[in-house]
Nucleic acid binder design. Structure first.
Lengths: 210, 210
DNA sequence: TCAATTTCTAGACCAGTTGTCTAGTAAAAG
DNA sequence: CTTTTACTAGACAACTGGTCTAGAAATTGA
């Protein structure tokens, strides 16, 4: 059950040359897993700590509080996801809308791979916002903003090629996509199948070449 | 802060002729408010009880557990919302798509009225499902199913009048709407404004008469 | 080389949570 | 007017959550 087997002794441990056993990274990794599944409020520190075999004291060495930890997770997740968007949406070896389709397909695979238990951290925390530290709000908004900007650029390219109707505003379209897609993730997690993802994708793509 | 002012005395209270001061109803009402804002996990019983001035003993007289309480809330919310759908979508004094637009407008008003703090109970709990009693899952799915069915019927009427393209499947369309709409609520709560609601509405309506 | 410092660990600690349980009060029933 | 019913009051136990202090070993630098 417990992740990487740490055999812990008291005191400062020998300097780790191998980077993978970095405690902080392990904590972030475990936090991402737990919180993409259960959100912020329902994720207990104990549970996360147990999963990596790290005591509370270590946690509070690396993070000031659970709130600070959450902020870091948003930051980390947002950036990782952003690179992922680049990987797909800037891939010049495919047409813009093809890149977009491949991206969606990768999301779909991700959901299936994790049995529809893990969703989107940003969506989860957004939903919970009513019970969350208020500093999260702007962070979450910013992340969405960035994802949308990247998506919008891809749409713009497609539009210039004539693959998207010119009376659609690409920025608005990207927003429409991300708003709806988060809804689709929510539903897919609830129903534990890909129906909602596919339904949304179909309709959205149909809308593009309208 | 505390809701309906109950001045409680010990012992069995006089039979209430006026229904509004029913303790159970008050608990449900308060539970709905709290949980549409903060979801299930982040809502403490104590907080809910304090807000209506009811002690634990009473709560556990009416409900077996927090889980049982949650089930009741889903049930209540689902039904109330369902009647609301009927109110709008079966109103023969307007054309089908007009009814639908009025419905959306009423949602929008609701969100504004509560400063974008209250969302949809079903959406909230759906998102949290990873940390919730598993009996909730089917309940939530069923509620969505019902809402979609009612919405689908309205679309069907519109389609028969020629207001919706015949190569759209109304059931799928209703699903598309509810999936996306929940996403829009999530985002509107996060951003504390109606942009996401309006963006989604615009695109969806544009999609209909495609 | 050896005290001072840094870095990290161990787990005690306290507040808050859910859910139980007993005692109590008064209306209602017979 | 006694018994029963329906509900309230809130203490309490078991547990979980987040925070914090003390401690131990590696590292530093005179």
């Amino acid at each position: 059950m417990s992740g990487t087997s740490h055999v812990k002794r008291r005191g400062r441990p020998p300097k780790q040359v191998d980077s993978y056993s970095d405690t902080k990274t392990a904590l972030i990794r475990a936090g991402l897993v737990t919180m993409t599944e259960k959100g912020f409020s329902a994720s207990g520190l104990d549970e996360i700590l147990r999963s990596v075999g790290v005591p509370k004291g270590s946690f509070y060495h690396y993070f000031q509080s659970k709130e600070d930890f959450g902020s870091t997770l948003i930051e980390t997740y947002g950036k990782a996801f952003s690179s992922n968007l680049d990987k797909y949406l800037l891939d010049e070896s495919h047409l813009p809308l093809e890149r977009f389709s491949y991206l969606i397909e990768s999301f779909r695979k991700y959901m299936i791979e994790h049995d529809f238990q893990r969703g989107c951290l940003i969506g989860n925390l957004g939903q919970e916002m009513g019970a969350l530290p208020s500093v999260f709000r702007q962070q979450l908004i910013d992340v969405f903003e960035e994802w949308q900007k990247k998506t919008s650029l891809c749409f713009k390219e497609a539009q210039q090629r004539g693959d998207i109707s010119t009376n659609l505003d690409c920025a608005e379209l990207a927003r429409f996509f991300w708003v709806g897609w988060e809804g689709a993730i929510l539903r897919a997690k609830l129903e534990r199948n890909a129906t909602a993802l596919d339904n949304f994708t179909d309709h959205f793509l149909k809308f593009l070449n309208k």
